[in-house]
């Protein structure tokens, strides 16, 4: 089933050249992570009132911690499991270079979902936009032949679960997060 979806999507490569060009940018290592990180920078400054701004800043901190611990989780899982990339086992038209690390879980999905889940906690619209972009990023990696759908789903699940755990921990270690934001406020950067 997993491989069949990859083959079905990858069959579309070369059919619509402009779509391939667009997916080539979305699937890149640089486009989506930069856009998602810029969303965090934007919410840091973007609240209309002091209270909503502080809520957004707390969400940005949680998302950043979620990305860090999500990456750690991928490293730990990678130490115990290894899954070949789809292009190893299937005859595919690659739109990407050949990564050598494990296909499972998809690290980009972990990063994207962690940022989206962090934003969701403070701003549903931005969170939904970030989830959509993460979904597009994941789908483009399947289309490009470098990830299986289950790699993406597992990565996204890890990202969301890690952010939920980080949110609980951040509540437990109050007033430390508030002190961090207050210190930044004294320097007029929060």
């Amino acid at each position: 089933m997993d491989a069949a979806i990859v083959r079905w999507l990858n069959d579309g490569v070369g059919v619509i050249p402009w779509l391939d060009d667009a997916i080539n940018v979305v699937v890149s290592d640089y486009f989506t992570p930069v856009v998602l990180s810029l969303l965090l920078l934007g919410v840091w400054f973007g609240g209309k009132a002091a209270a909503s701004r502080e809520l957004h800043q707390r969400a940005a901190l949680i998302a950043m911690l979620g990305v860090a611990f999500g990456n750690l989780a991928v490293q730990i899982i990678g130490a115990f499991t290894f899954r070949d990339r789809p292009f190893i086992n299937e005859s595919l038209e690659l739109l990407f270079y050949q990564p050598t690390d494990s296909s499972f879980p998809a690290n980009p999905a972990v990063v994207g979902a962690a940022i989206a889940a962090g934003l969701w906690g403070a701003n549903r619209r931005l969170g939904a936009a970030a989830f959509m972009l993460t979904g597009l990023w994941g789908a483009s990696r399947v289309y490009a032949g470098v990830s299986y759908p289950t790699d993406i789903l597992a990565g996204a699940a890890i990202g969301v679960v890690v952010v939920m755990a980080v949110t609980l921990v951040v509540r437990r270690i109050e007033p430390l997060p508030t002190m961090v934001i207050q210190l930044a406020q004294r320097f007029y950067l929060a």
Binding site: V34, L38, L41, G42, V43, W44, F45, G46, G47, K48, R53
Partner: peptide
Amino acid sequence: ASLGVIQVAVVHAGL
């Protein structure tokens, strides 16, 4: 891009 995002965000926030 950060310069641009900050400008858009501070317009929205009224800073």
